[in-house]
């Protein structure tokens, strides 16, 4: 069974393009990292806000959330 030749992995060729491609990947990773951090911060802020509410406020918020959902008043279909 023949698998074909080994591709060239010499690092001397196209050094500049390789470096630019790396830089792009690196910046994408930085961006990914920051997006993840921002998302974690948003979630923590939301959690803190929610925890600081009183029971009444929380119940009110829950009711509003449920009313906003589609099919909120329909019964769940019975599974056979």
């Amino acid at each position: 069974l023949e698998f074909g030749a080994l591709p060239e992995d010499d690092d001397e060729v196209n050094e500049l393009e390789e470096f630019d491609a790396w830089k792009l990947r690196e910046l994408q990773r930085v961006r990914r990292e920051r997006a993840e951090r921002a998302a974690a911060e948003r979630e923590k802020a939301e959690l803190d806000r929610r925890r600081s509410l009183t029971d009444e406020q929380r119940a009110e918020e829950d009711a509003k959330f449920r009313a906003g959902k589609a099919n909120a008043h329909e019964e769940k279909a019975q599974w056979k």
Binding site: F3, G4, L6, P7, D9, D11, E18, A21, R25, E26
Partner: peptide, 22 residues
């Protein structure tokens, strides 16, 4: 992550692709 040298990767079908260390 600083290392962007090429690495050959053996695919499941036996062929090779190039990837980078990072």
């Amino acid at each position: 992550y600083n290392d962007y040298r090429k690495l050959r990767r053996r695919q499941v079908d036996g062929s090779y692709t190039l990837t980078r260390m990072d």
